[in-house]
């Protein structure tokens, strides 16, 4: 195996992504429970936050989670039409679409932003989703923040800059 490939693999092994999962109490959270009680295996990279409904998830919380160092986000709610509060997830869908669009526009990799639906009976699907999300986040590497280093930008524009010039 080429050394570059090996190195890459080693790096990926070291990288243990932290993924914040916002799960709706009425479906995806129960699906996670079901996956657990059915002893399905899935990576332990997700940190679950239980929310009453995806419609209650303030999009700013997703921005905040990334700001605080999450490598990726998963938001999962009831399938459209099955919301416990009848239409919360329909509202959420528009918000997430806009949020995802904004973050991707400004440079966040799409792989970090995962939105999906998963019912309480879909333990198997939940485990699959988590596996997929972890894979997606691993494929883009550790999260470096919303901005590029200002020094790097300045250097790109000005050409080589002596270290001292920044001081």
């Amino acid at each position: 195996m080429a050394t570059a490939q090996k190195e890459k693999q080693a790096q990926q092994k070291e990288f243990d992504p932290k993924i914040i999962a916002f799960l709706c109490n009425w479906c995806s959270y129960a699906a996670a429970d079901l996956a657990g009680s059915s002893r399905l295996q899935y990576p332990s990279n997700i940190r679950t936050i239980r929310i009453p409904c995806t419609g209650r998830l303030n999009p700013l919380l997703v921005i905040k989670a990334l700001n605080k160092g999450a490598d990726g986000i998963l938001v999962s709610g009831c399938h459209p039409g099955d919301c416990h509060y009848i239409d919360g997830n329909y509202y959420a869908r528009r918000r997430f679409t806009m949020l995802k669009d904004l973050l991707e526009f400004s440079g966040v990799e799409p792989e970090r932003l995962n939105f999906t639906w998963c019912s309480a009976a879909e333990g198997r699907r939940f485990a699959e989703i988590v596996r997929k999300v972890v894979e997606r986040v691993e494929s883009v590497g550790p999260w470096q923040g919303f901005l590029s280093e200002p020094d790097v930008v300045a250097e790109k524009e000005a050409g080589e800059i002596e270290d001292g010039e920044f001081l």
Binding site: P80, Y90, R94, K100, P110, N114, F115, T116
Partner: peptide, 14 residues
Amino acid sequence: FSDFDKEDSEPGFL
């Protein structure tokens, strides 16, 4: 955001 359409698209959703 105070409105929705059941047929709204889901670009990029898993």
